[in-house]
Nucleic acid binder design. Sequence first.
DNA 1: GTCTATAACGTGATAGAC
DNA 2: GTCTATCACGTTATAGAC
Lengths: 195, 195
Amino acid sequence: MAAAHTDRSSAVKDSIRESARRLFTERGFEATGVRDIAADAGVNPAIVIRHFGSKERLFVLSIDAPAKWQAMLEGPLETLGERATRALLRNQRNGLPIWGAMVRASGRADIHEHLKRSVVALFAETLVDRLDGPDAELRAHLFAAQLVGIMSALVVYDDEFVMSAPVESVVMYYGRSLQLTLTPNIDPGKRQDLT
Amino acid sequence: MAAAHTDRSSAVKDSIRESARRLFTERGFEATGVRDIAADAGVNPAIVIRHFGSKERLFVLSIDAPAKWQAMLEGPLETLGERATRALLRNQRNGLPIWGAMVRASGRADIHEHLKRSVVALFAETLVDRLDGPDAELRAHLFAAQLVGIMSALVVYDDEFVMSAPVESVVMYYGRSLQLTLTPNIDPGKRQDLT
DNA sequence: GTCTATAACGTGATAGAC
DNA sequence: GTCTATCACGTTATAGAC
């Protein structure tokens, strides 16, 4: 029936997607040609376009990360700043680089839209319901902005100093700064000089 | 001296640079063709390359911002978090967008290098000497990362919520978060707003 | 001799014919 | 599914204008 052909077809699609994800991560969006992906997947260049419509769409569809990052936001709010920082540092060689590629490719309308949704929907909207106090929505968005800041340091402009700094130090400073946005009225430190 | 020839030549170069800056800012790096820039400046496409070597180099040379941003970091350290946030929000339609274009074009080696230097040299290294306490260098870099975060929200992934939020609210939350990285042991006394 | 214009090359993505 | 044509791009070779 159609099942056989569908299975074969989707096996090919998976194979293309996997090659795409690997190559996009390694070389970036525009340095990766459709021909390169096709060759890596062992298929003809034209069928890549035929299956995915465009190189742009293939890129978007080859990013899977969301589920993983969503998990990063779980757990108690009071220690989220620390845990999020730690999770990002842990993934700076694995999972994050594709995000760098997405930022760089965000001149393209589709990819820009996807990036926007990744940040806003995934980080900000996931969090807003759990935040207490005034301006919860704004604070969720600003938290997302701060995450993007350190992600950029790690995989967009490659700040070698941050990349090679002791994890515990980064967690201490950046984690606390994130935490201040999440829970501005609870002070994580000992010096609690609330007026 | 060679003034006559230099004047004419540099007038053309200035004209090209200005068209380039405008178009790159409006449309981004790759959506702007060398032919577009040439047409806008009223010159032949080939002389654009002849004068600047490559489109990549022209892009880097058409960014002038550094001096302006350097000024942003001046003034008392104790209120820098607030002032920096305010300055960025004020420039979200003027001066910042070219930075977004630079981020998106950072797949190119030259532009990546320029972005890195813009962030690290301009923000972090300018500040490190003025920071007190432990881990001054790391904190300077993390401060830069936080700046990049909100800049990205404004001109890379275009977080409409942040873009249209009341300036004072953003200044309050993000400014304070930045300040915590700058002066972790001094607590600004404006905390009563939050309780 | 330096600056400018014309025309062409190489390469990339993609659309259409077979 | 495969092959080939098309079109736009950055860039260069070559030769003319001052």
